[in-house]
Design a protein around this nucleic acid. Structure first.
Lengths: 140, 140
DNA sequence: TCTATCTCTGTAATGATTACAATGCAAAAG
DNA sequence: CTTTTGCATTGTAATCATTACAGAGATAGA
C-alpha cells in the first residue's frame, strides 16, 4: 500500500487525509496482525513523532465506524483491530493471546437475518489453544 | 430453579456449594438477561449481605471456565454473563446496550473445525440497533 | 475440639480507555 | 500570500472495570 493509495481511500470516504490518519491507515493495511492501540502507537511513533495515543484511539474507532477496519472485542482485556475487510472469523489463543484469522467456508453467515433488529456487524470467533501452544505443552 | 437444584448442580461439578456460590448460580439461571457483575452483585446484596464484588467476579469466571455459564465480550466496556448453555447467538444494541438472544438455525456452527488449533469456545454475535431503539428513532 | 484447607471479603492497585481544554494545522476565501 | 475558520491533534487527568493480595472466616475431617 503506497502513501497515495491510503490518501485516496481516505478521501473517497470523505476523511481529511492528515499525517497521523494516513500513517494509521497504512499501518493497519500492511499489518493484518490484529494489533491493539499500543502496538499501532509504538510502531508509528518514530515515523510520526508527535503522535498521541488518543489520536490512535479516535482514528481507529472512526475507521471502524466507517467500515475501513473492524474492532474486535475477542480479547477481554483490550480492543484489537483488523484492517482486513474480507469476511472471516477469528481464533484467539487463551495461552499466548494471539489472534488468528479463520477463513469462513461460505457467505452464509453474512446473510443471516435477525428478525426485528437491524444488524450492522457480524462477528464469529473461537477461543482455545493455538497449535503453537499445544506443541509447547506436549514438550513439557 | 430451587435452591436444592442449584446445590446439586454445583456438587455434580465438584464445586463446594457455599452460600454466595449458590446464590450466584441461581441468579444467572433465573435471569437470562445477560447481566454484568455489577447487576448480579446489586441484586444479591440484600439476600447475601456480606457478598463482595470480588467474589462475584471470581465465581462467574470459574463458572465460565467450567462450562456452567458463558462470559461474553460483546460489550466493549464490560463483561456480561449468560447462564443459558444452549447454543445460540447474541445481538447487542449499540444504542441501548441491551443484549438479546438470537436462536441459531442449526448446529452447523458448533461442528466447525479450526485446522491446527484446539477451539474450546465458539461465539457468534451481531451489533446494530434493536427493534425498540429503531422505533424510538422513527418517532423523532 | 483442633487443624488444615478452602472461601470470602475489602481495600488498594492496575491499566485500558475516555474527557477535555489548549494548541496546531489545513484548506478555502480574500 | 495572508487571513480566517473550523476541524484535528496533543497531553494530561479522570474514569472505571477488573484484578491482586492479604487477612478474616467458614468448613470438614480427625
Amino acid at each position: 500500500m503506497t502513501e497515495q493509495q491510503a490518501i485516496d481511500t481516505l478521501k473517497a470516504k470523505g476523511i481529511c487525509p492528515t499525517r497521523p490518519r494516513v500513517a494509521i491507515y497504512k499501518y493497519i493495511q500492511e499489518h493484518f496482525t490484529h494489533p491493539n492501540v499500543d502496538e499501532v502507537f509504538t510502531h508509528l511513533s518514530p515515523e510520526v513523532p508527535t503522535l498521541s495515543k488518543t489520536t490512535v484511539y479516535n482514528t481507529l474507532r472512526m475507521y471502524a465506524e466507517m467500515g475501513l477496519c473492524s474492532m474486535l472485542t475477542i480479547n477481554e482485556r483490550q480492543l484489537v483491530f483488523d484492517g482486513n475487510a474480507n469476511s472471516h472469523a477469528h481464533f484467539m489463543c487463551k495461552v499466548c493471546g494471539r489472534v488468528y484469522d479463520v477463513p469462513t467456508a461460505d457467505k452464509m453467515l453474512e446473510e443471516m437475518h435477525i428478525p426485528g433488529h437491524r444488524a450492522e456487524e457480524m462477528h464469529l470467533y473461537y477461543r482455545g489453544t493455538c497449535q503453537s501452544c499445544l506443541l509447547k505443552q506436549e514438550r513439557m
